[in-house]
């Protein structure tokens, strides 16, 4: 698996996957829908899969002395690693934003503890939708990305809107830390669990679909 991950990094990864990690700094913008920051990670995954299609990454990978299913596992581990690295990079920017002498985010949710739960859920949704379609036919990367983008943006819109109109969000979750910390930690834990559940389910489905696929 380590060799396949090395292949992901040295041959398959599109440079934008790393460049978009830098967009974690968007958390410093005073008023911005911060959940969108995590969408760029999905965009980097899309570029990696798109460039993989143009560079015949799958044909190369399945000819290596590995099981066909290992190719899927390596891609999921690579994507999860990128997503979690991005979440980790956002943390210092969120701390910095909280210390800025400015009011909270006027557009949507503040970058607080609960925010990371919602961000992880957005990544889980992306993984479930994108890989659910992508591994049915690895040639149709655009279709997978289009569907995943629609779902993620619908989710982001719902969460950011909720911060203005739903009392639970507006009055308790979208508050500066450490207010309502217990509730926010619960939101973080639920988001993290949902991310793991959606990603693992997507992996098993993708493995099954890829095994059946004619390359």
């Amino acid at each position: 698996m380590i060799k396949l991950l090395s292949k992901e990094l040295r041959l398959a990864m599109h440079p934008t996957s790393l460049i978009f990690l830098g967009l974690s700094a968007l958390i410093l913008v005073p008023n911005y829908p911060y959940l969108v920051t995590f969408f760029y990670t999905g965009l980097g995954v899309f570029f990696t899969c798109l460039s993989g299609r143009e560079n015949h990454d799958i044909a190369y990978s399945v000819a290596l002395p590995v099981r066909k299913s290992d190719v899927v596992k390596a891609r999921f581990i690579f994507v999860a690693a990128i997503e979690l690295v991005q979440a980790a990079i956002v943390v210092p920017f969120a701390l910095l934003r909280a210390r800025m002498p400015l009011p909270g985010n006027q557009v949507g949710m503040d970058a607080n503890v609960a925010f990371f739960g919602f961000a992880l859920l957005s990544l889980g949704i992306f993984n479930a939708v994108f890989f659910g379609i992508y591994y049915k036919d690895v040639r149709k990367v655009g279709k997978a990305f289009g569907a995943a983008s629609a779902w993620v943006f619908a989710y982001i819109t719902a969460v950011e809107a909720a911060c203005h109109v739903v009392p639970l969000f507006r009055d308790r979750l979208d508050r500066p830390d450490p207010e309502e910390l217990g509730l926010k930690l619960a939101a973080l834990a639920l988001g993290a669990l949902a991310y793991v559940a959606l990603t693992v389910a997507a992996y098993f489905r993708a493995r099954r679909d890829f095994e059946r696929q004619d390359l």
Binding site: K3, S6, K7, R10, L11, N55, H56, D57, A59, Y60, A63, L64, P65, V66
Partner: peptide
Amino acid sequence: SGGVDYYSQKKIKTIASVTAGF
């Protein structure tokens, strides 16, 4: 299967190095 048509912008020494690891 035909010629190498993967990773068209990577140096072939890099492709060989990754392949050798397997």
